[in-house]
Deep mutational scan, measured.
Amino acid sequence: TTYKLIANGKTLKGETTTEAVDAETAERVFKEYAKKNGVDGEWTYDDATKTFTVTE
């Protein structure tokens, strides 16, 4: 399944996707990606669109 991340960070803005077996796995991947890019904010997830959003 393809999951999408929308990053609304102070230093990183944009979108990326990952293939994962479930939302929990995708969330781990995206949180690691955000951490590597210095983004720390509020996370939301929309199951209907398989989209995570992080906003600083």
Rank of each mutant, 00 (worst) to 15 (best):
E42Y: 13
Y3N: 01
K13A: 10
T1V: 11
D40N: 13
T18Q: 05
T11Y: 15
A48Y: 10
E32F: 05
L12H: 14
G9V: 13
V54W: 04
E32A: 12
D47G: 08
Y45G: 00
K36V: 12
G38H: 08
T11N: 14
A20L: 03
K50W: 05
D22W: 03
K10Q: 13
E19Y: 15
K36Q: 12
A20P: 02
T17Y: 15
Y3H: 02
I6N: 05
T16V: 15
R28P: 02
T25S: 14
T55M: 08
V29Q: 08
L12A: 06
G38F: 06
V21A: 14
K35H: 11
Y3T: 01
G14M: 14
T25L: 05
K31S: 04
K50L: 08
T18Y: 13
F52N: 00
G38R: 06
L12N: 07
E27S: 08
G41Q: 02
A48T: 13
K10F: 12
T55C: 08
E24R: 09
T55Q: 09
E32M: 07
K4S: 05
T16P: 03
A48I: 12
E42P: 04
L5V: 03
A34H: 02
N8H: 12
E24S: 10
A34T: 07
E15W: 12
V29L: 13
A7P: 03
F30S: 00
E56C: 06
T55R: 06
A23C: 12
Y33P: 00
A48P: 07
K10L: 14
G41L: 03
K36Y: 09
G14S: 11
F52H: 01
K13L: 12
K31L: 06
T53H: 07
N8L: 15
L5H: 01
I6W: 05
A48Q: 11
V29N: 06
K4E: 02
T11G: 13
E24F: 10
E19R: 13
A48L: 13
T25M: 11
Y3L: 01
K35P: 01
G9T: 15
E15C: 14
E19F: 15
L12W: 15
T11R: 04
E56Q: 08
K36L: 13
T1C: 11
T17W: 14
T16E: 06
T16Y: 15
K50C: 07
E32G: 05
V21I: 14
D46N: 10
E15I: 09
A20R: 02
E19Q: 14
F52P: 00
K35A: 12
L12E: 06
K13C: 15
N37W: 13
T18C: 15
T2S: 07
A26Y: 00
E32H: 07
T55S: 09
K31N: 04
R28M: 10
I6F: 06
K36R: 12
T17C: 14
L12D: 05
T17N: 06
F30V: 01
N8D: 09
G14V: 15
N8R: 10
K35C: 10
T1S: 10
G41T: 02
T16G: 04
A34F: 05
N37C: 09
D22N: 10
K31E: 03
K31G: 03
T49Q: 06
D46E: 07
E24D: 11
T55I: 10
T55N: 10
A34Q: 02
T1E: 11
D40A: 11
W43G: 00
V21S: 12
T17G: 03
A20K: 02
T53M: 09
K4M: 07
I6C: 07
G38P: 02
Y33C: 05
T18G: 03
F52S: 00
D40S: 12
T2K: 11
K35D: 08
K13I: 13
T44P: 00
I6Q: 06
K10R: 13
L12I: 09
V54G: 00
F52C: 01
Y3D: 01
Y45I: 01
D46M: 04
W43E: 00
V39D: 02
E32N: 08
V54L: 12
E32C: 07
K10V: 14
A48D: 12
T16K: 09
A26Q: 01
E32P: 01
K31A: 05
G14C: 14
D46W: 03
T53G: 03
N8Y: 14
F52R: 00
V29R: 09
D47Q: 10
T51L: 04
T2A: 05
W43D: 00
T18H: 07
D47S: 13
A26R: 00
A34N: 02
E15A: 08
D22G: 04
T53S: 06
G14E: 10
A48C: 10
T17V: 09
T49A: 07
T25R: 06
I6M: 07
E19T: 13
E32D: 11
T44V: 10
D46Q: 04
A20E: 04
E24G: 09
A34P: 00
L5S: 01
G14Q: 11
V29T: 10
E15V: 13
G9Q: 05
A20N: 03
A7T: 15
F52D: 00
I6P: 01
Y3P: 01
V29F: 15
T49P: 01
G38L: 05
A7S: 12
K35E: 11
I6Y: 07
K4R: 12
V21M: 13
G41E: 02
G14A: 12
D47L: 06
G38T: 04
K31H: 08
T11M: 10
D46Y: 04
A20I: 02
T16I: 15
A34V: 09
D40K: 11
E24M: 12
D22L: 04
K31V: 06
L5Q: 01
V29D: 05
E32K: 06
V29S: 06
E19K: 13
A26K: 00
V29I: 15
K4V: 11
A26W: 01
E56V: 10
A23Q: 13
T55Y: 09
K4Y: 13
K13T: 10
E19I: 15
T51P: 00
A7H: 13
A20M: 03
V21R: 12
F30K: 00
K31F: 05
K10E: 11
T44H: 12
D46G: 01
N37K: 10
T25F: 06
F52W: 06
T18D: 02
A26M: 02
K4C: 05
D40L: 12
T16Q: 09
V39N: 03
K35L: 14
T53F: 10
A26E: 00
Y33Q: 03
E56F: 08
L12F: 15
T51M: 04
T2H: 07
K36N: 14
K4G: 03
A20V: 04
A7N: 05
G14W: 15
T25H: 14
D22R: 03
V39C: 13
E42D: 13
T53V: 08
T51K: 03
K4W: 11
T1W: 12
A48W: 08
A7F: 15
D40T: 13
N8K: 13
W43L: 03
A23V: 12
A48G: 08
K13D: 06
T18K: 03
K36P: 02
E42R: 09
V54A: 02
A20H: 02
E24L: 11
D22E: 04
E27Q: 09
E24W: 09
K35M: 13
K35W: 11
A26D: 00
W43M: 04
T44I: 08
T18W: 07
R28S: 08
D46F: 04
T11Q: 09
K50V: 03
F30N: 00
G9R: 03
K4H: 13
E42I: 15
G14T: 14
L12G: 08
K13V: 11
T25A: 14
K31T: 04
N8M: 14
K36W: 08
K10I: 15
T55W: 11
K4N: 05
E42H: 13
E27N: 05
W43P: 00
T44D: 09
A26F: 01
A7R: 04
T17H: 11
G41W: 06
T49F: 05
E27K: 09
T25G: 07
G14D: 08
Y45L: 02
